[in-house]
Design a protein around this nucleic acid. Sequence first.
DNA 1: GACTTTAGTTGGACAAAGTCCAGTATAGCT
DNA 2: AGCTATACTGGACTTTGTCCAACTAAAGTC
Lengths: 138, 138
Amino acid sequence: MSDLLERLRGRGWRMTAQRRVVAEVLAGDHVHLTADEVHARAVAKLPEISRATVYNTLGELVTLGEVLEVSTDKRAKRYDPNAHRPHHHLVCAQCGAIRDVHPTGNPMADLPDSERFGFTVSDVEVTYRGTCPNCAKA
Amino acid sequence: MSDLLERLRGRGWRMTAQRRVVAEVLAGDHVHLTADEVHARAVAKLPEISRATVYNTLGELVTLGEVLEVSTDKRAKRYDPNAHRPHHHLVCAQCGAIRDVHPTGNPMADLPDSERFGFTVSDVEVTYRGTCPNCAKA
DNA sequence: GACTTTAGTTGGACAAAGTCCAGTATAGCT
DNA sequence: AGCTATACTGGACTTTGTCCAACTAAAGTC
């Protein structure tokens, strides 16, 4: 993860305690956090960090392409640090659990020109929905 | 569209002026409205209708499968009355414009069992992102 | 190591989207 | 026409996110 920090410094990022903490939180094993969850964990490591800073930092990381914003239809956006391995998501409609998945096939190729309406298409996001084993039991 | 109302009545829906108005708004040619936009148009036809009712009604329509909830990553959810023809979406990252698209291929078949983690997968949503002709010009 | 510059942070106010609830109205049945 | 469960209302509340002016500190320079 410190390579992330290196990369960012290389791009002119000023290295601050706050940014380091946010990066550390995302690097942890709990992926797909909401902004508020990131904030909560960041506060645990650096009590004075403000919500605004967490939002700013997440926004910057997304802009720089280091983190993905995932909007499953739950209320809050979630942040996925796994930005460099392309993947899609499988979401439990009941509990909201999210898993990364790697479907075969290339959905990009499945959109013929006649269906592009003059858009320049740069990205596809595929979300599978269903019920996770846990919720299926209940 | 009145067939929609018929269908709903068949399912035990009580027919009220408010619900009729919401259904009419969705039947109009402006697809992909936000809840607030639906409310605004509903008010034009029935001034006393409340926001809560619009939210309730939209939620019921979604539950009944008559309307789709689309969460592009704009702030508000959008409601797509085109629920009976399966389709996906193409979104302009700049202005948020949405078009319905019909890709070839079947993304459902592209998720091997080994990638399902025990989930029962019932639905796929594909969102293409890009820049629309209008925004490309500017 | 102190100084300066300028990017970054803070916290509180604000805004937008959505939910909840107690009280009231009304559709559909008889 | 009257009854009753269902639906509607409007306002308070919550959640998620944005904005801004004042303050702080990172990194470069000497």
